[in-house]
Amino acid sequence: MGPSEKEACVLLDTRLLAFMDQLEILEEKRERLNSLIEQGWFSMTKARYSMGNKQVSALQYGSEMQPLVRVHTSTLDNGKAEFQIERTAPGERTVEDIGPKDTGGLRRRTHFTEEVVKAEGYQGYQPSAGTEAEKEPLPSSKVEPDLQQDPIRWFGILVPQTLRQAQVSFRQVVELSAEVAALQSAVLTTREQLQLQMKLKRRSQNEGQKEGQKDSD
């Protein structure tokens, strides 16, 4: 066995060990992913038991949906793909949004003319306060659809705790699925590298045999 062949063997062994490690991690993550999904279903079933048989179904999905989770992908030079989860918080409705919309009706007179103040001897009048009140922006009355709504609202306002638990489980599943996807990609890349390394080893072995034959001749 020549030095180049020995190097190739060492490299092959290192790659193989890395491949085995990746497979082991993938199996662990897979197990965790599957148990979290099962946990989510179990919580969902418990919620359905308390809410009613026909609750928490596809019929209740929102008519508008905006994702609260996105995944950032990138491909490294060696062909390995990376996945990173980005989560945005659902848009919270404020009290002003829920309450009756004020469409510009005057609630309190803010204009005091100098004459009125002088004539009535109004003590609390401050000219600057009036102008500031005018500049103060009114709460927006524009009706915007609450697209980034928490999906749990589709199933009711006062949902059981078990449905929230199901949501937490599935959020964790989403995070974990990005890790599993990255690991799957890593496993396939390492496999390709291993196959390439095996071919190189075989080539160097064949060359070594040919050289040996020439020397014996």
């Binding site: 279903w41 969902m44 949906m65 199901a166």
Partner: peptide
């Protein structure tokens, strides 16, 4: 993180889809 991230899609039975939509992956473009 530059740019807008990608979506996660699901093909599954009702409970699987409901679970993942609860997790916030759903989009109607």
């Amino acid at each position: 993180m530059a740019g807008r991230g990608k979506l996660i899609a699901v093909i599954g039975d009702e409970d699987t889809c409901t679970g993942f939509l609860l997790g916030g992956i759903g989009e109607l473009n």
